[in-house]
Amino acid sequence: MDHKVLSGLLNPIRMRILQTLLGQETVTTRVISEQLPDIPQASLYRHINKLVKDEVLEICEENKIRGTVEKVYRLKINPFQQIQEAVEQGGKEEHFQLFYTFAMSLLTDFQQYVNTEDYDMEKDRVGFRSYPFYLSDEECDAFLEDMKQALMKVARNEPNDQRTLRKFSFTMMPGKDE
């Protein structure tokens, strides 16, 4: 997979746009905007155009509405399948590039957060920790399944006045005893 495309897929706003499309065959910018009201319209258009340019989305229809043209989009590729294929079929370089892009997106998100005027890590419930623990393969699989179930409970929450967009990211890899 092209590194530029992968980097675009790991962008938090583009990932949210793609998650909006996953449950639907086609969607308009208006529908995406309604489902992601916290993203400014100009920014939303810019991210959608980038996804079209990178051939992740395609325009499948154009409708004239009151003198303007409304574009209808659909997924051209399944981005999550593309990432999974890169994991399964890639070598050391592709795997490193995937992880590097993931880590850089975390750094970018954190930099944007700390550059806000009134950030407060405790109030905003920001945290990062590393928890080393010993698990058999079976215990690891059970742990990951429990995490998946917990994440699925909140993954489809709709935005509203009571909810803040929060990003939960994690890695798991073997460690060295020290």
Rank of each mutant, 00 (worst) to 15 (best):
G127R: 13
N160C: 05
M173A: 13
Q82S: 08
A155T: 01
R166M: 11
A150W: 09
A86T: 08
D124Q: 10
K148V: 06
M104F: 04
P132R: 14
F110R: 05
Q81T: 07
Q82E: 12
T116G: 03
M104G: 12
L151N: 13
Q149P: 00
F110W: 01
F128Y: 10
E138T: 11
V87R: 11
F99W: 06
D146W: 09
D161W: 00
A155R: 14
G91T: 07
Y113K: 10
M147H: 12
M121G: 00
F80Y: 15
N160Q: 05
N115L: 08
M152I: 02
T108M: 08
F96C: 03
E93V: 09
A86F: 01
R125S: 02
Q149F: 11
Q82I: 05
A150V: 07
M121Q: 01
F110Y: 03
N78L: 01
Y113M: 04
V154H: 14
S136Q: 08
F96Q: 13
E94R: 13
Q82G: 03
D137G: 01
V87N: 03
Q111V: 08
M121P: 00
K167D: 04
Y100D: 15
L106M: 11
E145G: 00
P132E: 13
K92F: 10
M104E: 15
Q111W: 04
